[in-house]
Design a protein around this nucleic acid. Structure first.
Ligand code: SF4
Ligand code: SF4
Lengths: 160, 160
DNA sequence: TCTATTATGGATATCAAGTATCTACAATGT
DNA sequence: ACATTGTAGATACTTGATATCCATAATAGA
């Protein structure tokens, strides 16, 4: 249960793009060098970000990447979901077990009979956990992190 | 980013143990059959739970497993950590990159120079997310899930 | 238009982890 | 002793993450 390194790279790449926004397009070479990862590998990650409309890519001379939207509209959750996929944290793998019959029949009676897809409390707890995590990650944007970093630095240098 | 199936099985096994607490020891065969998974595989999972003091095992005739502590002291977080391990959700893999130099130097100045292990805001956000998740999972126990299931069933049958 | 530059997508290789099973061994109660 | 039951190690299979290479397509600028 860990985020993949790709997610790590994606986040760092986006931060670099945000910091260099005024410089126009950023080449994959520069990005890869800054992050310390191979160009070929990073391309794959950037492609995903592009396909999901988080960055724009421009081929050709002086081409490269730029953010497709303001950094304060790019949340951690989005980036993570693009790279990691959107599968649920907890997938029932016991749906045909005796136990599931027990726990879900108990549940089924409570709600309307129509509500077939009703799940037991185990799943409900786990889904709650996921929602909790998502809420938190939705509240944090790339811009916020960059801002805080710059503010702190600024606060320090101006004090000295 | 998903919990492994082992975690799923572990949770369900513990629920079965809780429901059958009065019946004394529960054999691995019964457990495996209830969950619909092979005995050999489930043994591995139960072993982990035993090593971490969540269940007790008794070999020999009429042996089997039982909870080592009351079910209301067994949290989802514990179970998950036993099975999934205790690695952090987010591990920095860019610690030697140019970017890390940038972001962490900015940070370093703010805190006392002694505080070497200071990390940037990216990591702080991700660690916050993990803590958020852990808090939630700490608040939910096996007993709570079982109780709710039984209460609901009871509430239903007594009404009808 | 031609060319150098740059991203794209497919194929592929490698490695680690999760899933799953089997077997020899040790501990227990009768 | 003896049948029962869990333990631990070895092993095989599958999947996903990581990483690279190359042929192709798109673009800007000469
Ligand atoms: S978690 Fe609940 S719904 Fe999912 S398989 Fe287990 S008993 Fe069924
Ligand atoms: S997340 Fe922050 S501390 Fe971690 S590698 Fe990236 S810049 Fe460094």
């Amino acid at each position: 249960m860990q985020f993949s390194k790709s997610t790590d790279y994606a986040l760092h790449a986006l931060i670099h793009l945000t910091l260099s926004e005024k410089d126009g397009h950023i080449g994959i070479k520069e990005l890869a060098h800054t992050l310390g990862v191979s160009v070929s590998y990073l391309s794959k990650i950037m492609s995903k970000l592009r396909q999901d409309g988080i960055v724009r890519a421009v081929p050709g001379v002086n081409g490269g990447y730029e953010l497709a939207r303001p950094a304060d509209e790019i949340t951690f959750l989005e980036v993570i979901q693009v790279i990691e996929g959107r599968e649920q944290l907890f997938e029932c793998s016991n749906l045909h077990s005796q136990q599931h019959q027990l726990l879900s029949e108990e549940m089924a009676e409570v709600h309307l009979p129509k509500h077939r897809g009703s799940e037991c409390l185990v799943k409900k707890v786990m889904d709650g956990a996921e929602e909790q995590l998502h809420q938190y990650l939705r509240q944090h944007t790339i811009q916020a992190v960059v801002d805080q970093a710059l503010n702190r630095q600024h606060g320090f240098t101006s004090k000295k």
